[in-house]
Design a binder for these strands. Structure first.
Lengths: 137, 137
DNA sequence: TCTTGAACCTATAGTGGCTAGAGGGATTAG
DNA sequence: CTAATCCCTCTAGCCACTATAGGTTCAAGA
């Protein structure tokens, strides 16, 4: 039997975040002590580690809810879980691509800046005049 | 003299967003018509294009506020603007690096998934067991 | 001049994934 | 028994918007 603080220390998930996950339906409301404090078991610990791991990998809360639901049916085909992970991977790749565009544009702007007065500053000028950009964004 | 809708169409910034920028102090409160509607001039159009461009490049609102303040002093050295852009570039690069870590971890998880039952599914197992991961995250 | 419909106004609440704080009760070590 | 530390609920705040409600103004056509 762990108190919420024990669970927090063991998983690295902050106490208010654990309560938030309960509210979001990722963790079922637990047993309580006589004084109404949450008491957890080992399965809750594993569940929370699963959630934390999924969050670290960038899955959002609805996706984690689905993954949890799937993991409760071990006999079902795993295409669902695979699809969720694959969709997420695509989203991550898309985000990387768009950040790399930004990176190149910013590199160009910063490297052109000679370091004189604001009047000639490429940073300010590039922002004022879209025509100085390489491509659409 | 443009109405807010004209400004919106010309810059691609939505009407409520323009009002939001005014509230955030990026655009000074404008002249109003007799009936209390905002009326803009060409300088406002340029200002808003500057803001939109900076937002597209991922600058946050405090940074844009600073850039605007700097652009009002054309005789000052441009080190300030350069630093803001450079800091932002570093942040973008850091975000790319961390997303690439995610990408590799997700690739590994998805590619291991054979497509059988949830019981053996690598996606679910990898999430349950951090030990299956390559490195810390 | 009048009417209609589009555009405008303010104010408030919602998005996601937490985090911080107030104001109280429970637990536990000494 | 007391004091320190934990825990409880509830509410509000973060960011950059977006959406809605309920009302007013504007501009073009009849």
């Amino acid at each position: 039997m762990y108190a919420i603080g024990d669970l927090s220390r063991r998983t690295g998930v902050k106490v208010p975040t654990i309560r938030y996950y309960e509210q979001m339906g990722l963790i079922s409301p637990t047993q309580r002590s006589e004084g109404n404090q949450r008491r957890y078991e080992k399965t809750d610990l594993e569940r929370l580690a699963f959630i934390r791991h999924a969050r670290d990998l960038g899955f959002d809360i609805p996706a984690i809810r689905e993954l949890i639901a799937l993991s409760r049916h071990p006999e079902a085909p795993c295409a669902g879980a695979d699809r969720i992970a694959d969709d997420h991977l695509s989203a991550v790749r898309a985000k990387i691509a768009s950040l790399q565009k930004l990176e190149h544009e910013l590199e160009r702007i910063v490297s052109h800046c000679g370091g004189h007065s604001v009047e000639d500053c490429y940073v300010i000028r590039a922002l004022s005049d879209h025509g100085l950009c390489d491509h659409e964004h």
